[in-house]
Amino acid sequence: MRSKKITAIDIMRMSIVIAILIITLFPIYWMITTSVKPTDIILMTPPAFFFQPTFEHYKYAFEQANFAHYISNTLIVALGSTFIVIVCGSLASYAFARYNTGGGNLMFFILTTRMMPAIAVVMPFFVIFRTAGNTAIGQFLQLGLDRLGTLIVCYTIFNLPFAIWLMHSFFQDIPTELEDAARLDGYSRFKVFIKVVLPLAAPGIAVTAIFCLLFSWNEFLFASILTRDVARTITVGVGDFWTQRGILWGPLSAAATVCVAPMILFALLLQRWIVRGLTFGAVRG
């Protein structure tokens, strides 16, 4: 039993944790402060901790480096793929949870596709989309190298297995009695799904959607290989400041802050479900 008295051990524990937290948070603190440091201070040795903050780097990133364009690209791709993932994924994971479709084998096969090394998929995609980009249908659907449709396809594939597994865990939490009752009231199976199951699963579906948005936003490999200018996303755009003349640390930090900050907010929002999400629904934190 733990005593009520504050002991030296309690204080020691707390100080160790605080020390580790400082080390952990320092890179992010440094990123944010660098983004508001004047250029001459950024390159000072030893590094300066106190300075007059400036927003010139943000101005540079958005006005000269077209960063707003990358953000809108990322949003289109992330929202588009998340929408497809949620529609297809919720139907599928519901079938897995209620009708045990495929007896677990199918679901496991789906998980395997998520474990594939992305590089093994991106190379054939490079050739396939290069060809597709030259056809009329491909151009119409925005499929091709450096096109947004291409990225939507890629992110859909990579988020769908994750979403199916995570939503499956949420669907399992819904008692079947409610559905049976609705069936007896004369609802069709599909109507039960829409009117009874979906409202109950809404929080879980929202959590899954936010996770998908987060993964799409942070994705780099597909975006860096399959896009150049037109469809360039934010994570790739941060690298823009690694130029021939050297690295522009100020604008780069500003860009990185813009890239990282919204996702940190999302993660804090997801806090209660983060463990469940990180383990594909297997561990309920």
């Binding site: 890179p27 936003w217 934010i234 890239c259 940190i264 983060i274 990180l278």
Partner: peptide, 8 residues
């Protein structure tokens, strides 16, 4: 965990 590995 939440920050994009490419950016950080």
């Amino acid at each position: 965990l939440a920050s994009a590995p490419a950016a950080v």
